[in-house]
Amino acid sequence: MTDKHISNTHTGPIDDISGVTTTGHEWDGIRELNNPMPRWWVWTLYATIVWAIGYCIAYPSIPLIRDSTKGLLGYSTRGELKTEQNAATQAQTAMADRIASASLQDILANPELSQFAIAAGSSAFKVNCAQCHGSGAAGSPGFPNLNDNDWVWGGSVDDIFQTVAHGIRHPGDDETRFSEMPSFAEGLQPLEIRQTAAYVVSLTGTPRDPAMAEPGKALFEANCAACHGENATGNRELGAPNLADAIWLKGEGEDAVAAQIRTPRHGVMPAWLPRLGETTVKELAVFVHSLGGGE
């Protein structure tokens, strides 16, 4: 290799295979090619370094022991978030104050208030009610489905407010909803209980022994119609459920009906007014009413 292949002190000989100058460094017979980064890329790197230094000076960026640098511009994303949260809180407070002073009927008649109440009630429902009624308010055995139009105590927004506010069989609340189905384990014979259950099932389905439905009807009229009605359609004033709509709270089928006649189960719902306050209870009532409320 002649001297003309040697460039200057910063480069070595030209590599015979690639035709690229080398740096002059060689390891185990392998020469390092002199392939510097493109000039535009280098200047871009320098620009980002300058930008980073300027950013550190202008904005909070350098962590200290208990704090961080404040930056010359005084800007803070946390401060911006706090400002936005305060503005949202003020807007929510203003709407909550309007709901607090409005009647339930006025809230339903005002689209703005109704929309806010439904949104707020939905949040309150997920925190306080979903554990029993489910996140979608579809209920489960022993916990009613709030999406349908079947109501034990009435489905108007005022009825729902009363139920949510004072609960059902909630001890210590004089205005709580209260009904108690008596046990017929001693008043009726086992056969009579099964006959009554067969009649109740016959209202919406086919009992295992249809012949038992007729004597069961007479037993129902004598022992159950006073609360559930002659047609078994229920009585909301007494909290007696409709037995002729194929919607079951405690369980479906003759065995479940017979068990309820023999040893009735009574659920308990807390009174939410002392815990949540009137405004939140109004929002919950409007939200639940929007799911499937009816008169």
Rank of each mutant, 00 (worst) to 15 (best):
A47Y: 08
T44N: 09
W41K: 03
N35P: 05
E84V: 11
W43K: 07
G71S: 10
S76V: 07
I17A: 08
T21F: 01
D67G: 11
L73R: 09
K70D: 06
L64S: 02
G71A: 05
I49R: 09
Y75T: 04
L72A: 06
I57A: 12
L81A: 05
T83I: 13
E32D: 04
T83A: 14
K70N: 05
Y46K: 02
T23D: 02
S68T: 08
P63Y: 14
Y75C: 01
A58Q: 07
Y46T: 06
N34R: 01
I62V: 15
T44E: 05
P63A: 05
K82G: 05
W27R: 01
I57G: 03
S61W: 12
T83Q: 13
I30T: 06
I53C: 07
G24Y: 03
K82E: 13
E80I: 13
G19I: 01
L73H: 06
G54Q: 06
R39I: 15
L72G: 00
A47T: 10
I57S: 06
P60E: 00
Y75A: 05
R66D: 13
N35V: 15
I62M: 11
D67S: 15
H25R: 09
Q85L: 15
I65C: 03
S76H: 07
I30N: 01
L81F: 09
S18G: 08
A52S: 13
I17Y: 06
D28I: 01
R78H: 07
S61Q: 15
S76W: 08
T69L: 14
T22Q: 01
W27P: 00
N34E: 04
S68Y: 14
R39T: 15
S61E: 08
G71T: 09
W40H: 14
R39N: 10
V50M: 09
V20Y: 01
I53Q: 07
M37T: 07
A58E: 08
T22V: 03
A58Y: 10
Y55H: 14
K70H: 13
R78V: 11
E32W: 00
S68R: 15
E32K: 00
G29D: 03
E32I: 09
I49M: 11
I57E: 09
E84K: 11
R31D: 03
P63D: 07
L73Y: 08
T22R: 01
I62P: 10
W43T: 13
Y59V: 04
I62A: 02
C56P: 06
V20M: 07
S76N: 10
E84C: 06
I65V: 12
L72S: 02
W27E: 04
S68W: 15
R39S: 15
V50Q: 02
L81R: 01
W43H: 10
W41L: 12
W41I: 13
Q85N: 11
R39P: 05
R78Q: 12
I17W: 00
W27I: 12
T77E: 08
W40Y: 10
D67T: 14
T48G: 08
I53P: 06
A52P: 04
Y55E: 04
R66K: 12
G29E: 02
V50L: 12
W41R: 00
Q85S: 13
N34F: 07
N34V: 03
W51N: 04
L45V: 10
L72W: 13
K82Q: 11
I49P: 03
G24K: 00
E26M: 05
G19V: 02
I49F: 13
I17P: 00
T44C: 14
E26Q: 03
I65Q: 11
P36H: 04
V50T: 06
P36E: 01
G74L: 11
